[in-house]
Design a protein around this nucleic acid. Sequence first.
RNA 1: UCCCCCAUAGCUCAAGGGCAGAGCGACCGGUUGUUAACCGGCUGAUCUUGGUUCGAUUCCAGGUGGGGGAGCCA
Length: 828
Amino acid sequence: MTAAENADRYDPRAIQQKWQQRWADLDTFSASDDPADPRPRRYVLDMFPYPSGDLHMGHAEAYAVGDAMARYYFQRDYNVLHPIGWDAFGLPAENAAIRNNTHPADWTYKNIETQAASFRNYAVSFDWSRRLQTCDPAYYRWTQWLFLRFYERGLAYRKDGYVNWCPVDQTVLANEQVINGRCERCGAEVIRRALTQWYFKITEYADRLLADMAPLEGKWPERVLLMQRNWIGRSEGAEVRFSIEGRHEPVTVFTTRPDTLYGATFFVVAADSALANELCAPEHAAEFESYLAEVRKLTDIERQAADREKTGVFLGRYAINPVNNERIEVWAADYVLPDYGTGAIMAVPAHDQRDLDFARKFGLPVRVVVDTRLPDPAQTGTATPGEGTLVNSGPLDGLSKSAAIAKIIEILAARDLGRAATSYRLRDWLVSRQRFWGAPIPIVYCDGCGEVAVPDDQLPVLLPDLRGQDLAPKGASPLAAATDWVNTECPKCGGPAKRDTDTMDTFVDSSWYFLRYCSPTFEHGPFDVEAVRRWSPVDLYVGGVEHAILHLLYSRFFVKVLHDMRMLDFVEPFTALVNQGQVINQGKAMSKSLGNGVDLGLQLAEHGVDAIRLTMIFASPPEDDIDWADVRPEALVRFLTRVYRVAADVASVSSAAAAADLAAGDLDLRKVTHKTIDEVTRLVESTRLNVAVARLMELVSAARRTIDSGGGAADPAVREAAETLTVLLSLFAPYTAEECWELLGHAPSVALAGWPVADPALLVEETATCVVQVDGKVRDRLEVPADIGEDELRELALAAPGVERALAGRGVRTVIVRAPKLVNVVSA
RNA sequence: UCCCCCAUAGCUCAAGGGCAGAGCGACCGGUUGUUAACCGGCUGAUCUUGGUUCGAUUCCAGGUGGGGGAGCCA
């Protein structure tokens, strides 16, 4: 059989069909729950998909990366947990149900089946036995159970407040779901609305969410850690109590610059806070009310616009600076936020640009208290927030900024006027949603008993059977209309009660799914503590950077709470994180409106699964975007054909059974093979998968060269290269690898063939090329033994003809020797 | 405006204080069993200006360009 005949036989589609059927019987990728299984465990997790339709190009990249990593650990004979499930609650299902007059479950489960079939076609190494869907009652029962545990611990609570409301989706949004003042889902401008809602007290964990990031350093992408730190937004400073004339209680402010306290020349409270309303003197009420009305009209987008002119009104009241007893005006303004710090600030215009802008607009005094050697802010309009020496500050005069901060805190604390304090930007997580397709909040309201938790043995609180127009947005939860469902019995007194009609944010569902995979059918709790102890935390988590804050922060929070409940013995859910990039087209995200979408199904049909997977992996480092306009899947089809031909050539002249004398094989090829093993191993370990594929291409070229112009296909080194190639390739192109493996005379599955080990003896070079420079320029080259001594090399170099020529009679000042690679002769 | 990261061939990436090299693409040639495959060749690349050094693409400083993040958070 010749190579050409074999080449004709490489048919990706036929191979896919053949192996999909054979693999179905092999059960290759199930994780062993046997505690006695001696193999080390690895938990490789892909972020579970939302079932919005069939898989798309983005999924194809993400799962190609995760699957390569999982398959690597399978090859290394780890006991690998690589599960899959669906994040199946959510708005699109509800909208589809309204459109088609059906139940959201119809759409959801249909799409899940479509995606599941596509995953199988895509040959992802999932353990299908652990599949879960967050919309299954058997799952959301435990989401509700967890809510109740949070409730018991005071971590779930209900409060009134202004919330972010999306007028299109007709539901509230968490702060994390508002991007630049717009709904992250539909892009509508978010408005403020007063509602009573459930919150999770994530702020109680702010410090730990920050501190526990230290071990993730180097294992999570730097930018994700940065975004989480920014989001938590810890600031250190002090709280200072200002008394207010005519008010009994003092008002506390938070400041990061207590050293500038002597420079506080006015006082500002958030206009839209209860405090502003209370402090306003009666004769200023009309003015304040009209200002407040203006502020309320602003959308978040307008309010957050950069370089906005400062606005505000004087409240007719005075605060007393506790250190110098100065009387300073109290103003209301919208540049002070009601929900950060205490909603009130001391304004130090000389050293804070915002305060300076405000002072200059309203003619308020500016006093420099830190000498920064920069021009007077009152003149320049530029505040001087930097380091300097304290002036005009009584006992602080002459101190540096940091010394003054320490000193003033000491003074304030001694007189009970303040203390060191930390403030966070992080807000509590609003979890109520006025939507149908989610887990109902398991709380009932009883006229007699008030807020009552649904007992565990009555879980799950099942969703009522609503469909079609029942689900249309009405500004309140669709569940409220299901009166039979809403009206219930109080679990405490048996009297009439009403159910909470909101459902939970779907991010609650996804904050613990990775734990459920460890024991997906467990019925005595959300997870079997022992199973989780064996598998978790997740060793490698693969998913998109769009979850840098939301999902990852919430999951980290959940794990910490569960740790405090003594259900987990670790505090961070994901030991390592890889964010794969997006698949874009012609420089832009694929979108319907641009018409630049690429259909994954068509790509797979045209080029085959393996070629698409390889294209995804080879196109760029996993974390970079792939521009589909820049890639050529057909090039990878050609590469796979070449791989197949190498295997076919070997198969045609030798059999796996015949023990060939490897030592007699082509040494150069063997060196390439073993160097490839060594490098690909390290590249995969560090998820530099694109480079790993490039190395495989080089190995194919080397094998081809030996077949065509070296020892031929019968050379045992060629078989070694082909078998090595096949196993390494199985991470990326499982169908082709399986077919080659069979061709080479082995039984399936190549996925468990075992990762090859490089022979150290074949990795060392006996000779090296020594570059001989004169004054830094290359003048000669010498082939020398790799272990040559410095003195010997110096002699050889000085005698080299190129050196003599270059020196042209000049003397030698010094000779730098870096054996065995380099000698630099410096002329006199 | 501020903070972080990056800058190597047409593209995607390596290496790295000491010969700058792979894959892909394009092009040219050879070859065969010519709707094509294979083989060979080719592309003469370290953003810019200084500094340190025997030697800088690598280290340092400034600049430029790109990416990301923050965004009245006191």
